[in-house]
């Protein structure tokens, strides 16, 4: 750990000194939340599993509500944590449950199934939904056509998908969560997003990005924003928050 990584911190109370010191020693690690949405059965769970766990799951189940997966990635020698919210595709969930997760996300991945026209045709609905939740329009969005391995069953041709993606200002990726040869491709998609996120400006107002920070969890510093500007300041606030004794973190 080099000294450059240390930053001035206001030390609120003596007893928190040690936590702050621990924090100072951390590599400052940014966390990005990515929501993955699209119709049921398009392969959202398989894609996120492929990326986070490195393989195609042998038994997937319907997602009920939301599942959560994460992965550490390195982008230009910065370690980032990507948190993927894998949501349920059935309409009833999306209408009443998934909203909660649209908040505070840094990127959106829209997934359709290239072998199923309806999953493509439903995309405007998903996009509208996403807009409706007041997501910052600047948020990176990508458009993923999954199940490309089923070459004889392709129902949505690339041109059509590309046109749609263009009209919504999103890059299109066609891929397969299943095909082992495409594994790098799935990684590349999420890495593209990670690059974009890394270079993007901070987008969370401070009040939305307040978290407790558990110093026990030594390699995690929860920072939504650029660390120089926000991270340590937030950590200090959290230390303040500790005073009321309501939280063990």
């Amino acid at each position: 750990m080099t000294t450059e990584q240390k930053t001035e911190v206001r030390k609120p109370e003596k007893e928190f000194e040690s936590s702050v010191t621990v924090l100072e020693k951390q590599t400052q690690r940014r966390i990005f939340k990515i929501i993955v949405i699209g119709d049921s059965n398009v392969g959202k769970t398989c894609l996120t599993y492929r990326f986070c766990c490195g393989k195609f799951p042998d038994k997937t189940e319907a997602t009920i509500g939301v599942d959560f997966r994460e992965k550490m990635v390195e982008v230009d020698s910065e370690n980032l944590k990507l948190q993927l919210w894998d949501t349920a595709g059935q309409e009833r969930f999306r209408k009443s449950m998934v909203q909660h997760y649209y908040r505070n996300v840094h990127a959106v991945v829209f997934v359709f199934d290239v072998t199923k026209m309806s999953s493509f045709e439903n995309m405007p609905g998903w996009i509208e939904e996403c807009d409706r939740h007041n997501l910052n329009k600047e948020i990176p969005r990508i458009f993923v056509g999954n199940k490309c391995d089923m070459t004889d069953k392709i129902a949505v041709n690339t041109n059509l998908a590309q046109k749609f993606a263009d009209s919504h200002n999103m890059p299109l990726f066609e891929t397969s969560a299943k095909d082992d040869e495409k594994a790098n491709h799935v990684d590349a998609i999420f890495m593209t997003l990670a690059h974009k996120l890394k270079n993007s400006k901070p987008m969370m107002p401070l009040h939305l990005s307040q978290y407790g920070t558990g110093y026990q969890n030594n390699d995690i510093v929860n920072i939504n924003d650029s660390p120089e500007r926000r991270g340590l300041r937030r950590a200090t606030q959290d230390a303040d928050g500790n005073k009321d004794g309501n939280c063990a973190c």
């Binding site: 966390i31 939340k33 939301v66 959560f68 994460e70 978290y211 558990g214 995690i220 063990a248 973190c249």
Partner: peptide
């Protein structure tokens, strides 16, 4: 639970 970070993602997980 209390041993973890007071963070939505971590606690959800």
């Amino acid at each position: 639970i209390l041993e973890n970070e007071c963070d939505m993602c971590i606690l959800h997980g």
